[in-house]
Each structure stands twice: as C-alpha cells, then as structure tokens.
C-alpha cells in the first residue's frame, strides 16, 4: 500500500512536469505545424536564467522573470529566425530548431561553464510536507505540483475565456480559416512561440533545482517530450495531459515492480531460457525506455495518438 501510494505521487509529480514541457510544444505545433526540436533547450534556458536571477534577486522573482525572459528570446528567435525558415517549408523549420538546440547548448556551456551550476531549492521550500507511512513527501514536490496545476488552469482559462485563446483554439482545428478571417497570423505565431517556450522555461525554473541544472539537461528530456506529444496525439492539449500522466505513472510503477521478461512470457505460456540475455531483463531495467516502446505501439495501432484529431 505504501509503495502504491508513494509511486502514484511520484508518478503524478513527474507526469505534471512532463506536461508543463509538452503543453508548450503542443501549442506551438498546433499553431505553426512545426515540432520545435529546441523546446527542451528553452527548458534548460529557463533553469539557467532562473539560476542567474536567483543569485541576484532570489528565487521568487526568478519564478516570474526567467520565463518572461525566455519568452522574449523565443519571440526574437521566431521573428528573426524561424519566420525566415518558414518560407522553405516544415523540414527547414524543423531543421532550424534542430540547429538551434545545438547552438543553445553550446552557448550555455560557454556562459555558465561545462559542469552543473549550484541552483538550489529556496530555504522556505526545503523540508518535508507530510510523511506517508515512512516515506517523506518533500514540500518542493508539492510546490511543483501546485505550479503545474496553476499553469494548467491558467492555460485552460486563457484558451477558453479570452479572445486570443479562441483564435488559438480555432487554429487547432482550422488554421487556414483563421488566416482567412484576417487575423495577423504571423503575429499570433510569434506570440504563441514566445508563450510556448515560456511554459517550457517555467518547467525549467521549477525543474532545474529539483533535478540538476547542467548543459546536458536539455538532451536528457528532449526526446521524452516528443514521445508525450506523439502519444497524446499531435496538436491535442488534452492528449498531452493524459499522455504525460500516463507515462509518468507507468514509468514509476515499472521501476517498482520486480517482474522479468521471463515472468511476462510465462503469463503467455512461453518458456524462456533462463540463461539468455533477454530472459534476464527486468521491467525495472526497461522502465526508462518504456515510453519509446509505448510510442511505437501507439503509432502502429492508433496512428492519431490517444486523443489526436488530425493525422499529422
């Protein structure tokens, strides 16, 4: 029981962080049709900016300032880079963001050094929120959940209650119509891109000190975010939400279960040779690559993803 509850909490926390990352990516994809390869790089920039700001002003201002700064960077990159690549089609756009992720990582190394920086959790959030049986649940994890739920609500309100949100939503299903209605689509693109990367940066601000702020952090989450978006269904925010939680929880439980491939095969009546390398694999060992297996399976059996409306 303890194990189930603790794993569930861990899974949800991790899933919510994934959602913060993937929501921005989904927004950008639905609006602009481009998968932002550099999305995780903005997550990293968020963490580094927050570290820099927190050194000068403290953590709380950083929580606000860092995402705004990264959002501004995003706006500038869209305006002076991505927009030019847009002329040449989606492949060029994708490759632009691919190159951008290279460059951002190198710039981060140059500015903040090649090793991890000392970005700490603020004192006020350091400690235990509650103890579940014998496991501590840290305050900071509660805070992460709070921020991500807050972001989810704010995003929901923005998309359903404001004019801009309606336009963005309309673009989810009918991008061409929105343009035909005379909206300044390039400007919306620019704002959505800025907003999307700011969301990633917010995830970076609260994830950077919970985990580690170092130049490899973007590469570490980069691909998993794509998995979430693809599993959830390209362009579906709700799908991204469900997929994030699902992947977070499945991965967490898979680590905890002591099941080997031999056991699973036995369930289907297949006897594996105990000496084979395959037979010795456990679910725990596979846990971190389960999402990729999951993605491939989804694409084979339900190409639209869990909740995707459009084919691609």
């Amino acid at each position: 029981m303890e194990f189930v509850l603790v794993s569930l909490l861990n899974g949800i926390t991790y899933g919510m962080l994934l959602f913060m990352l993937s929501s921005g990516l989904t927004l950008i994809f639905s609006m602009m049709g481009v998968l932002n390869f550099a999305h995780a790089s903005f997550y990293m920039l968020g963490a580094y900016f927050a570290y820099q700001v927190s050194v000068i002003l403290g953590f709380w201002p950083a929580l606000l300032v860092a995402p705004l700064l990264v959002g501004l960077c995003g706006v500038l990159i869209e305006r002076y880079g991505l927009r030019n690549a847009h002329k040449y089609g989606h492949v060029a756009e994708l490759l632009f963001t691919f190159g951008l992720s290279f460059l951002i990582e190198e710039i981060v190394r140059l500015v903040w050094g090649k090793a991890a920086v000392d970005y700490r959790i603020p004192e006020a959030l350091n400690g235990t929120l509650f103890t579940l049986f014998s496991s501590n649940f840290p305050i900071y994890k509660g805070f992460m959940m709070l921020v991500s739920v807050g972001m989810l609500l704010a995003l929901y309100a923005l998309l359903t209650r404001t004019r801009t949100g309606l336009i963005v939503q309309a673009a989810l299903s009918r991008p061409d119509m929105v343009e035909a209605l005379g909206h300044n689509v390039p400007r919306i693109f620019m704002l959505v891109f800025g907003g999307g990367v700011a969301l990633a940066a917010l995830a970076g601000v609260i994830g950077g000190n919970a985990f580690i702020t170092e130049p490899g952090m973007a590469a570490a989450v980069g691909t998993i975010v794509f998995v979430v978006v693809v599993v959830g269904g390209l362009g579906s925010l709700a799908g991204a939400f469900v997929a994030s939680l699902l992947i977070g929880i499945v991965q967490t439980f898979a680590v905890g279960l002591n099941v080997s491939i031999t056991d699973i095969a036995a369930l289907f009546g297949v006897e594996l040779q105990a000496s084979g390398a395959m037979a010795r694999l456990t679910l725990t060992q596979l846990a971190p690559i389960l999402p990729y297996l999951f993605m491939v399976a989804i694409l084979v059996f339900r190409p639209r993803g869990l909740m995707g409306a459009r084919e691609s």
Binding site: Y14, A220, F253, G256, T284, A287, I289
Partner: peptide, 21 residues
C-alpha cells in the same frame, strides 16, 4: 539489485521508493 539505462533517468524517486521498501 537494479540496473537502469545510463543517463536516461530523470526522476530517481521510484528507485528510492524501492530501496526503502
């Protein structure tokens, strides 16, 4: 005894939960 893929685990809390258990 557990093995995990190198450099791919972001959140080690499930492993810690297991160690605790």
């Amino acid at each position: 005894e557990d093995l995990h893929p190198i450099g791919r685990v972001k959140d080690f809390s499930p492993y810690v939960a297991k160690i605790k258990a």
